[in-house]
Every structure is written in C-alpha cells, then in structure tokens.
C-alpha cells in the first residue's frame, strides 16, 4: 500500500506491505526494517531495526496526532491516487470564522454585529470548568455575524462569530 504522509508539515512517501508475519517498508524509497505489534487499540509497539518505540494514535474531530514517546506530531495520511484531502492553501484574507476552542457556555458577548474589531481584541467570553476565557479576533476587521447568543451552550469548533 502506498501512502503520502505528512508529519508536522514534512512529507513522506511510504510504501507498506504486510508479509508472512511482518512488514516490508519503503520510506521515501529507502528500505526500513520494521516490526509492529498493536498492543491495544491506538498503541503501537514499533521496532525499527532494533530500536523500540511506543507510538500512540490520537484522533479528535478531524485531527490525527501521533505521539512518539512524549513527542506529539500532527499527522495526515493521504492516498496519492485520490483527489481528496489535497492541501488547501492557508488564506488570511476574506471572512474568518471565530470558533469555540472547547465546549462551554457563552457567558458574554463583547461586541455586536457591525462593530469594528482589532486583531487580538476579545469578541466573546466562553466559560468551561469554572474558567472564563476570552475568545479573541485573529485579525482586524468588522464583525460580520455573531452566531451565538449569551447563555448558549457551544461545542468545540462551533462558529461564534465571523470577522471580515
């Protein structure tokens, strides 16, 4: 099987095949001696040559992270033959969605639709676990839309406002 893998922004082409009791592995065309045991779901005991690693897989919403020991890596796995999941270009211009970083409750709205906002200025206050957190604007602009009302319960990733 052929994979395009991106780890913390670095691209790898990985060819993996299961053999009788093992794996063959080509990383960017270079042969790597690999031995893997899935110790339990999301925990891989990996041997590369004789070096041993424990790798954890963490899947939250659409994000995949791999932990090698205590180091965390953002990971993306793609099918090179598929059009899906092609890198989108980052774009700072245009409307920007302000999302709740965690589940919680909107306790206060600091601005209204139509207000001017500076980069770093607070837009809403979300409370979770007894902590109030100010959600700030990532850019200077105008509040185009406020999508929540005070007192509303929000989930991580919910759009609170749009800044244009």
């Amino acid at each position: 099987m052929l994979y395009d893998i991106i780890i913390d922004g670095k691209n790898f082409r990985l060819e993996l095949n299961r053999t009788e009791g093992g794996w063959t592995c080509l990383l960017d065309g270079r042969e790597v001696e690999v031995d893997a045991v899935l110790a339990r779901p999301d925990v891989l005991s990996l041997r590369i040559g004789n070096m041993a690693y424990e790798v954890k897989s963490e899947h939250v919403a659409n994000d995949l992270h791999l932990w090698v020991g205590s180091m965390r890596f953002a990971a993306e796995v793609r099918d090179p033959r598929s059009l899906r999941g092609r890198a989108r270009t980052g774009d700072d211009s245009g409307p920007k969605k302000i999302v709740a970083p965690m589940p919680g409750k909107v306790v206060r709205l600091l601005l209204q639709e139509g207000d001017e906002v500076e980069a770093g200025a607070g837009i809403a206050v979300v409370e979770a676990m007894k902590m109030q957190n100010e959600i700030k604007s990532p850019k200077k602009g105008t509040i185009q839309k406020i999508s929540v009302s005070e007192g509303a319960a929000v989930n991580a990733g919910d759009v609170l406002a749009i800044v244009e």
Binding site: V34, L46, Y53, F73, A75
Partner: peptide
C-alpha cells in the same frame, strides 16, 4: 525537532492506517 522521531511517526501513521 528530532528527525528520527518524525520518521518513526510517519511509519507508525502508515501502519495504523493499514
């Protein structure tokens, strides 16, 4: 950033996917 660990993560990502 440890390049060796990055490679380990890449290989593990593939194995998890398989």
């Amino acid at each position: 950033v440890d390049s060796k660990s990055t490679e380990v993560a890449a290989i593990a990502a593939g194995i998890f996917a398989v």
